[in-house]
Design a protein around this nucleic acid. Structure first.
Length: 668
DNA sequence: AAGTCCCACGTC
DNA sequence: ACGTGGGACTTC
């Protein structure tokens, strides 16, 4: 029997309305009708009417309270979309903090955090049915390749660590004793950290930049953790299976969540570990608003929820290096003797475009020798046959007459065509010297495969690039030509590695070019078999010496020192402010930053301007909140302005003020 | 996104 | 004195 006072207590739900409008990014109070009292719980999805907007909107119930602080009359919740509380309280707190940090809305973050609902998948988790308790799992073995005092107890003590991965491959023992499988040693290291987390019945979240790395991580985790503890969340799944896995993470304790960047938001009431693999990889960057980097989200989440934080990589990002230098993370490096064999080799004298000068003779001999025993990896800078044609007389890069995109040759014997608009280039004439003949510039993966195929007849050639994904190759002899970042894993490791085009990769413009090159090379070198040799061709100086000596953290430290001197990220934080010129000027002026920290405005295509502002980490909170005020003010005034200009302001591209924090492209 | 309020200006 | 159109403001 219910008591009268309980029944008459005013039940009020505080609701986060699912809307992209910044002025709605706060909680609204709604009355819970008697009929829905049982199914409206914190975390459930509801439909409410927003009178001022004149329509129904969906939203999340954040909390239930007895009384509202709101002076006006409350509307009622219309319906409960689902009684399953998909939004976990810790995910809500995280979304709120991440949005505030980036001057964005919590709704935008929640859209990344919670996948599309599937009614079928929900049936197993209806309220009232207690979630199953998974059988206990044994403690994990220690990490290989580190001194015990460095690498033990990271998860048990909730440590924050920047982990330098051991640059080699390992064989995974398969559970049924059949065919073993080769993965990077890093994958097994992260899997063991995850196993330590689930041994304490705490969830571990492992984030990898792409499918190739995810695949290795998945295999490594399944070799140390029972399958019912593994949850995979990535974009390749169907909606129902993705939602099913999401709900397993939501309602089970002590699982391992493996996924790409949005996995950092996976629900975990008891969090034991968040690990980000290769945090410097640009694929981690989140394209959706507010564009928070999973590394930063992980930092925020670790602070909110505890657990261990691990940023791991063969190369150390400047961002991770900064965390070490300010004392936020402890560096864990492999024990001595882990360094691979890397030989920097100058190009032979003469024209670098000449086929044979591209590969020094010592490397030729080494590759030939290694091919007797197993697969050899050749890393190239670009895909295709000849990605850039140039004028045969003055070497000016050839551009498409129609769209000015680069002209190239996609396949051997193919006609020159534009890489952007695919138009066949006929009747080309050089704008510089009036020349009419084209010559091949740099070689792509296809042409390198052709050249090497002729040099090593009867050798199997495998090409792996963005178009043709190859995850793994066998231990038998083969030449594997891969563009940077697309290298397959070879069973037992490559017998030799040849890194080509390094000079061209390093010659690009951009703030993170050196950092990127070190990462691409390091990741390829780490695929070599123990004792195998890598030739780093055509690169000299400090970068080559650093990679050859496997001085990853020293290189990251030097790079960071340079950024500090120039006041570039990650030594400082930055925000790009884009929109109509007078509105951007006003928003930037409100920040009261010193003149040397305001870069711009510069015009952007499609109208408007962009200004970059930079500021120290301590000021970032204040900067975000002032920018957010500007955004809200602007959004309220937007309709009127749009109407005056005679256009509709319905699409997001039309907004007059956009802010993005820590945009990696800002200085490119 | 869309309804409402309010103020400035126009008209009788 | 009354009517009207457009901009600012609010959203529970």
């Amino acid at each position: 029997m219910q008591t009268g006072s309980d029944r008459s207590a005013r039940r009020v739900a505080r609701v986060m309305v699912d809307s992209p409008l910044p002025q709605l990014d706060r909680l609204f109070d709604y009355e819970v009708p008697e009929a829905l009292a049982g199914s409206v719980v914190a975390g459930s999805r509801v439909r409410v009417s927003v009178r001022a907007a004149g329509r129904m909107m969906e939203g999340w119930v954040i909390e239930l309270v007895d009384e509202s602080e709101f002076a006006g009359a409350l509307s009622s919740i219309e319906t409960v979309v689902s009684p399953v509380p998909a939004l976990a309280p810790e995910v809500w707190r995280l979304a709120r903090r991440v949005a505030d940090r980036a001057a964005g809305t919590a709704s935008d973050v929640l859209r990344l955090a919670i996948p599309t609902r599937s009614v079928r998948a929900e049936q197993a988790w209806l309220p009232g049915v207690p979630p199953p308790v998974l059988p206990p799992v044994p403690a994990a073995p220690p990490l290989d390749g580190y001194r015990e005092q460095d690498a033990s107890g990271i998860v048990e003590r909730d440590e924050r660590v920047v982990l330098e991965a051991v640059p080699t491959v390992v064989e995974l023992p398969s559970p049924d004793g059949s065919a073993s499988r080769t993965v990077g040693a890093w994958a097994l290291a992260l899997a063991r950290l995850a196993a330590a987390s689930v041994a304490g019945n705490r969830t571990a979240i492992l984030v990898a930049p792409d499918h190739r790395d995810l695949d290795q991580l998945d295999a490594a985790v399944r070799s140390v953790v029972p399958a019912d503890r593994v949850v995979r969340v990535d974009g390749s799944q169907s909606t129902p299976s993705r939602y099913r896995d999401f709900l397993r993470a939501r309602f089970l304790d002590g699982v391992v969540v493996i996924g790409t960047r949005s996995a950092v938001y996976a629900p975990a009431a008891r969090l034991g570990l968040i690990a980000i693999w290769d945090d410097g990889d640009p694929l981690h960057r989140e394209p959706h608003a507010p564009g928070a980097h999973p590394r930063d989200v992980a930092l925020v989440r670790q602070e909110l929820q505890g657990g261990a934080l691990v940023l791991a990589g063969h190369a150390i990002s400047t961002d991770a290096q900064r965390l070490v230098e300010i004392g936020w993370c402890r560096r864990v490096s492999p024990a001595r003797g882990a360094a691979p064999r890397v030989i920097p080799t100058a190009l032979a004298s003469g024209d670098g475009a000449d086929d044979h000068a591209r590969i020094p003779s010592a490397a030729w001999r080494g590759v030939g020798e290694a091919l007797q025993h197993g697969p050899v990896l050749v890393q190239v800078g670009r895909p295709g046959y000849s990605p850039q044609l140039v004028c045969s007389t003055c070497s000016t890069p050839a551009a498409c007459p129609r769209c000015s995109g680069p002209l190239g040759i996609a396949r051997r014997g193919a006609a020159p065509s534009c890489r952007w608009c695919a138009a066949i280039a006929g009747g080309w004439r050089c704008p510089e010297c009036d020349g009419v003949r084209l010559r091949q510039g740099v070689a792509g993966s296809e042409r390198t495969a052709d050249e090497l195929g002729r040099a090593f007849p009867r050798t199997r050639i495998i090409v792996a690039d963005g178009e043709r994904t190859v995850l793994a190759v066998e231990a038998s002899p083969a030449l594997v030509i891969a563009t940077r970042g697309a290298e397959p894993v070879a069973a037992g490791g490559y017998r030799a590695v040849l890194l080509l085009d390094g000079d061209r990769m390093l010659a690009r413009e951009g703030l993170r070019v050196a950092e990127d090159c070190v990462r691409w090379w390091s990741n390829a070198i780490a695929l070599a078999a123990p004792g195998a040799t890598t030739w780093l061709v055509g690169v000299g100086g400090r970068t080559a010496a650093g990679v050859a000596g496997w001085q990853q953290s020293a290189m990251a430290s030097a790079e960071l020192a340079q950024r500090r001197a120039l006041r570039f990220p990650p030594a400082v934080r930055v925000a790009t402010v884009t929109g109509r010129d007078e509105i951007v000027a006003e928003a930037v002026a409100a920040l009261h930053l010193p003149e040397h920290d305001v870069l711009g405005p510069v015009p952007v295509e499609g109208g408007g301007v962009r200004t970059i502002v930079r500021f120290d980490y301590q000021r970032a909170g204040a900067v975000a909140s002032v920018l957010r005020e500007s955004i809200v003010r602007q959004a309220a005034a937007r309709r009127a302005l749009a109407r005056r200009a005679g256009r509709s302001a319905s699409s997001r591209a039309d907004v007059d003020l956009r802010v993005r924090f820590d945009d990696a492209d800002a200085f490119e």
